[in-house]
Design a protein around this nucleic acid. Structure first.
Length: 361
DNA sequence: TCTGGGGTCCTAGGACCC
DNA sequence: TCTGGGGTCCTAGGACCC
């Protein structure tokens, strides 16, 4: 999505005739129902520790739950208020979703395409100009193969590029196939709000509206220099390309190399005791060090995040004198960073993160 | 309706160096 | 004398996505 990954020199790109975007339907909820068939047909909500009286938000709601107006990122307490008593709340079980994701990606890789994994439940499939497959037929084959191997349903979007394919998937959901190509871009997208574009959220939409731009067509017609002036030299022109449905980024099957790892916790009750904050920072630093060790890469920078009640976030970070994977070094750095923050306020959330140096080429 | 946790990338100002 | 210009690193914050 971000422009950084999209702005490769043309010489690195393979000529792509079309792109498929595969997106699993209600993935997390579907994985839970798959192993608990008795939940089928019930409103199922996965989020937090599975206790709707706690602080936490909905990770995924089943379609039955969505019918009650429950969706991702909604506080669990709100979801509980909206849902009938038979609704089921489950805790997030990350390893289970990672395993299920691997099953799905293995199926996708069995097709003669390049596969770029976007997250647990999404991937782009790219084929070259020389390949003969018809995208609709391939899309249907992918859906059938994923269902047969994993008992999970997915939707597929077809586009001339990743941006179009990603948006097209939404037109196919659930269990369908959507199509959005250059020839019909403005017919389909022109009158939609700018938030219909992948990469434009509420904040950017508001800034665009302040410039008199509210629709995709309006964004496409905007002056590039004006957008660059108002929104930045990289982002401004990139937004305009989004408005025109243009995306030259290749489907890149290269395994993802993480830039950073972090752990954070929202406390069920705000912390007032700064000693407790510091010891929690040490615990989180230990978890981060484990993540680094699993990859065999040291931290180059360490950062802390503190969210004060009611909801005000502060971050501090530093570059280590030399890269280190030591839990003790990361913990000490985190504690030093905490010294630079106000100790007299209630703390709602604490996070510790480590940034890695890029691996040697 | 009081707002998770895991990430990515961009921007902008100041420090510092040549 | 009160003023250069470019480049890179560091840091804080913001926006977006799943």
């Amino acid at each position: 999505m971000p422009p950084g990954r999209s702005s490769r020199p043309p010489s690195e790109e393979s000529p792509t005739r079309w792109v498929l975007h595969v997106d699993l339907d209600e993935f997390i909820a579907a994985v839970e129902v798959r192993r608990r068939p008795e939940l089928a047909g019930l409103p199922v909500v996965v989020g937090g520790r599975g206790d709707p009286t706690e602080r936490g938000v909905v990770a995924t709601a089943s379609y039955e739950a969505r019918a009650y107006g429950v969706g991702s990122a909604m506080p669990l307490r709100t979801a509980a208020r909206r849902l009938p008593p038979e609704a089921v709340f489950l805790p997030v079980d990350k390893p289970a979703y990672e395993d299920a994701s691997e099953e799905v990606m293995a199926v996708l890789r069995s097709f003669p395409v390049r596969v770029e994994v976007l997250g647990w439940d999404e991937a782009f499939l790219g084929a070259d100009l020389s390949d003969e497959a018809v995208p609709e037929a391939l899309a249907r084959s992918v859906q059938e193969a994923v269902l047969a191997s994993t008992r999970l349903h997915c939707s597929v979007g077809i586009g001339d590029n990743k941006l179009q394919a990603k948006i097209a998937t939404g037109f196919g959901k659930p269990r369908g196939i959507g199509r959005l190509t250059t020839d019909r871009w403005f017919e389909v997208m022109g009158d939609r709000p700018t938030t219909a574009l992948w990469g434009i959220g509420a904040k950017t939409a508001r800034r665009l509206a302040d410039l008199g731009i509210t629709t995709v067509a309006g964004l496409a017609a905007a002056d590039t220099a004006m957008l660059a002036e108002a929104l930045g030299p990289t982002m401004g022109p990139w937004f305009r390309r989004l408005g025109r449905g243009v995306d030259s980024s290749p489907v890149d099957p290269t395994p993802w190399v993480p830039r950073a790892h972090g752990r954070e916790t929202t406390f069920q009750t705000d912390l007032t005791d700064w000693d407790a904050v510091a010891s929690e920072a040490r615990r989180l630093a230990g978890l981060v060090a484990e993540d680094l060790a699993a990859e065999g890469r040291p931290a180059a920078r360490v950062g802390v995040k503190v969210r004060y009640a009611p909801f005000e976030t502060r971050q501090r970070s530093l570059t280590l004198p030399e890269p280190s994977g030591s839990a003790e070094v990361i913990a000490e750095a985190a504690c030093r960073l905490l010294e630079r923050l106000d100790h007299d306020r209630r703390v709602r959330l604490l996070g510790v993160r480590a940034e890695m140096s890029p691996p040697a080429p």
